[in-house]
Design a protein around this nucleic acid. Structure first.
Lengths: 253, 253
DNA sequence: GCTTGACCCTGACGCGGCGTCAGGCTGTTG
DNA sequence: CAACAGCCTGACGCCGCGTCAGGGTCAAGC
C-alpha cells in the first residue's frame, strides 16, 4: 500500500504544501516517484512522518528533527523515551499554568465585593498572598487554600486595609534592611521573615516554615512575585527569598 | 515603579527585540517615553504583557491577541475563563499524547525477544492489537493490558507466527467481503467481527463486546489504525469499524 | 569634565515554516 | 474526448521575530 501526497495529507492532517516542503528540505522524501513524477509514500514514510509531527509538535525546528531522525545511533526506542520525557515536561508546565489561572480566578471571586477602583486602591496592583495556594499545591497540603478562601471571604474592607498596611510595613522594613546592607541570612532579616510568615498565618492560612520556604522559592522563580518585590526595591525579591528560606531552616533546625 | 525595555525583558523572559516588535505592531505600547525616547513600561503594561504571553503561548497570532485584549466588551475575568478553557484543552491533548507514547513503549518491550528484522518479518509493519490498551484506558478496565502483557510475554516466536497468520486471515476475509459488496452491518460481516473479537480474547486479553466496540471506534479515529487497514484495502478501516460495532450491538442485544 | 561601558534608539535584512496563487501536466469517470 | 479532480514546479508573501549596523544616552569612576 502506498499513498499520494493528498492521501497522506488527509490521513495525517497536514497539508499537501507541508509535504512538498518536507520533501524539498529533505526532511521527508517519498520513497518513490511514479513515472509521471507523482510522489509515492510508503509505510516507512508514514512512520517517519509520525515521528516528525511529534517532534514538531514539541517545538523542535525542522532541521533538528531531521538530524534527530537521521542519527544512526538513535534507535526508535530512544526517540520514544525522549518524546515521552518532553511530553511530560510539557504536561507539567501546562498544569502549572492551569493552576495559576485558577488561582487568579478564585482571587477575583474573592474580591468580588470590592469595585475595581477599591481593589486597586487597597492592593496597589497585586497582592502576592493571593497566589500562595499555587505554592501550596506544589508542596502538598491543599487544604490551605480552602482555609484561605474561608477566612478572606469573611473579611471586611477594613480588614483588607489592615492587611494591606501590615504587608506594606513588613515589606518596607525588608527594603530598609536591604538598603542598610543587612545580610539576608542574618538574624534580623530572619526575624522579619518570621513576622511575614505569621502575617500570612494570621490572615490567610496556616503557613508552616516548610510552606513558607516554598513561597520563598517562588519569590524569585515566579515572575509575578519577583516583579512585585522588584518594584519596591531592586534586589528585594532575592533578598526576601533568601531571608524566608533561612528562617525556615532556622525554625526547623 | 517603571521599567526600561531591558528590565522588562529580563523580568518576563522575552527579548528586547520582541518588545520592540510588540511596540511597532501596536500590541504593547509602553505607556510612556522618556525625554531621550527611551521606552518606559509601567505596571499596567506588565499586566498586559502577561496576558499577551499567555495567549501567545496558546498559539494565538499576535493580531488576534490584540483584538482580544482591546475588545472593550471583554472584561479580565472573561480572558481568564477563556485561557483556562484553552489550557485545559491543551492539557488533555498532551496527556493523550503521553499515553499514546507510553503504549508504544510498552508494545516495544513486549516484543523485546525478537530482533527488529524478525519483528518486521512477523508483523509486516504494525500489529494493531499492540495498541489496544490505548482503547482500554479510554473505556476503563485497565486490567486488560496487564493480562495482555502476561500472555504475550509467554509467547514463543511460533506463537507469534500463528497470531500473525490468524490476523492476516481475518483481515483478508474482511477485505474480501468488502470487495464483494457485503454490507458492513450484515450478519456475515458481523460474524467476521466476532471472530476478530475472539482472536483478541484468545491471544491478548478478554475483549468484551463493549471493549471491542471501543476498538472499532478507534479503527477510524486513530490514524495509525486507519492507516493499517487502509493499506490492506481502501475503505477497510471504516468497514471493519462498522462491522465490529454492529456485532457489539448484536452481542449486547 | 571626560572617558568608558552598558544600555537605549531606529532602520533594515534575513530566516523558518509554511499559505497561496499561477501555469501546466496526469488520470479517472462518464 | 471532455471534464474535473489531483498532481507537479516555481515564485511570492506573511508572521514573528533574530541579528547586525550605525548612532545616541547615562551612571560610574578617574
Amino acid at each position: 500500500m502506498s499513498w499520494t501526497v493528498g492521501e497522506l495529507a488527509r490521513l495525517t492532517g497536514v497539508t499537501v504544501r507541508t509535504l512538498h516542503h518536507y520533501d524539498r528540505i529533505g526532511l521527508l522524501r517519498p520513497s518513490e516517484r511514479t513515472a509521471a513524477g507523482y510522489r509515492s509514500y510508503d509505510v516507512r514514510d508514514l512512520d517517519r512522518l509520525h515521528q516528525v509531527l511529534v517532534y514538531r509538535g514539541l517545538g523542535f525546528p525542522l532541521e533538528e528533527v531531521a538530524t534527530l531522525l537521521d542519527d544512526p545511533d538513535a534507535d526508535p526506542a530512544e526517540h520514544l523515551r525522549r518524546q515521552h520525557r518532553l511530553l511530560r515536561d510539557r504536561l507539567e508546565a501546562t498544569s502549572a499554568m492551569v493552576a495559576a489561572v485558577e488561582k487568579e480566578m478564585e482571587a477575583r471571586q474573592m474580591g468580588i465585593s470590592l469595585t475595581p477602583e477599591e481593589r486597586f486602591e487597597v492592593f496597589g496592583d497585586w497582592l502576592p498572598e493571593e497566589y500562595a495556594a499555587e505554592a501550596e499545591e506544589r508542596w502538598g497540603d491543599t487544604e490551605a487554600w480552602a482555609q484561605s478562601q474561608r477566612r478572606t471571604a469573611a473579611m471586611s474592607k477594613e480588614d483588607w486595609l489592615r492587611v494591606k498596611a501590615e504587608t506594606d510595613d513588613v515589606e518596607g522594613r525588608f527594603a530598609a534592611a536591604l538598603g542598610a546592607g543587612v545580610a539576608a541570612d542574618s538574624a534580623a532579616a530572619m526575624d522579619l521573615a518570621e513576622e511575614h510568615r505569621q502575617h500570612i498565618s494570621r490572615w490567610f492560612y496556616d503557613c508552616s516554615p516548610e510552606v513558607h520556604a516554598g513561597l520563598g522559592e517562588m519569590y524569585v522563580a515566579d515572575e509575578r512575585f519577583a516583579a512585585h518585590y522588584e518594584r519596591i526595591a531592586p534586589g528585594l525579591a532575592q533578598y526576601v527569598s533568601t531571608a524566608v528560606r533561612a528562617n525556615a531552616a532556622r525554625q526547623r533546625g
